[in-house]
Nucleic acid binder design. Structure first.
Lengths: 121, 121, 121, 121
DNA sequence: GTGGTCTAGACCACG
DNA sequence: GTGGTCTAGACCACC
């Protein structure tokens, strides 16, 4: 569990959990069929509520990144590299649509976006 | 008042108001010393509560984009083009720091970000 | 009329008027029996509402600093230097009671107040 | 909650709340990471509206004196004694600039201010 | 007329 | 349970 949680962030904790674990899965850091720790253990480790962990796991399952075997645990779905790349890009693109709409509202051209992004990155 | 409000959006209404108006000011669409509509009128027009409008206006004032004269109304602060560009870029950069941290968590290089961004923009 | 008005200040304009004129009177800058400008003229000069000027003049009269002769104008009350000093100190002391209660709430001793005041003055 | 509220004061209630609590924090009366009472409870105790409390809390947060964890509560920011002294003096100095401008308008020297202040304190 | 403040009461997301 | 948001409606000071 290599997770960093910020209690003060505006992002809900379950969302932080979901984002970080899905990123790890899609980067290939968590192998296929890897068994996630039981939610109670994860909750203890991360010092968050069980409900919070459960919500994050559900979100992962809804995105097809893990599957639950009742009584056994939660396992990382087996995905081909292509599928992983596909899913990764889908998730990023979805976020980018929101991000760019913000930039556009300020009248930025894509060149200006690149310029500023380079500074920040 | 050229404002679009989404009641279903996850973003609070006052935040939407703030973002859109600040964008309009920093794009130069609202001239210096322009008098914003009275909060009660704005609230009626936009079909939101007075308090929601007030909260947005307060945020604008806190960012130095407008100033309030009690009993008279709220006016757009006079800013030089340089100041406006500065403030605009500050606001965007602030958002970009959040955006890029998300991209980075997926292990994307800046080139990959540009690639995907170009598709979306 | 040597008056500076701030529209953005939190202090109401009539209060600003009252404070500045009473200060001028009690500093002896406005001679006894000096005739203040008619409220309409003052309002035009200062670019404020007649009502605002009237309110300030009323406040001055209530404090015994001017007196009104209907149809003739408003005149500075004749005061001995002692009376002036007395009134001046009364006004300042009244304000100081409020000011010091704020300092005290932070647990400041009078020595610390002096220290900080010296920096600011 | 050792707070005294004056409904007759010219100062808005949320401002009174803010001033008294910030003073308590900066005097070290409220320990770091101390959890403020829930806004609803505070509102009931103090017999004011929830919104009034919330506004005061927001002001405290904006000044970096507390931080909010949604769903958990509001906590006093951990500050070093130096930071606390710094912030305390900043707040007082800010007020003193206003206070002294009033004294100055009467032509008072700093010695005269000290003299009168000593009487009042 | 304007904004400033306060109230009571509701619904939601998060933990 | 917590805070976050939104609503409708009221009263006040100022201009």
């Amino acid at each position: 569990m290599n997770i960093a949680i910020s209690n003060t962030s505006e992002k809900p904790i379950y969302q932080q959990l979901f984002e970080q674990i899905s990123a790890q899965i899609l980067k290939g850091e968590l192998e296929s069929a890897y068994c996630l720790p039981p939610i109670r253990q994860a909750a203890t480790e991360l010092r968050v509520s069980i409900i919070t962990v459960k919500k994050a796991w559900e979100e992962l399952e809804r995105h097809g990144l893990i599957y639950t075997v009742t009584g056994k645990g939660c396992f990382v779905t087996e995905l081909s590299s292509d599928d992983m790349l596909q899913k990764r890009n889908d998730m990023i693109r979805m976020q980018m649509i929101i991000d760019t709409s913000y930039y556009k509202s300020f009248g930025l051209t894509i060149e200006e976006v690149f310029e500023l992004l380079k500074e920040v990155y």
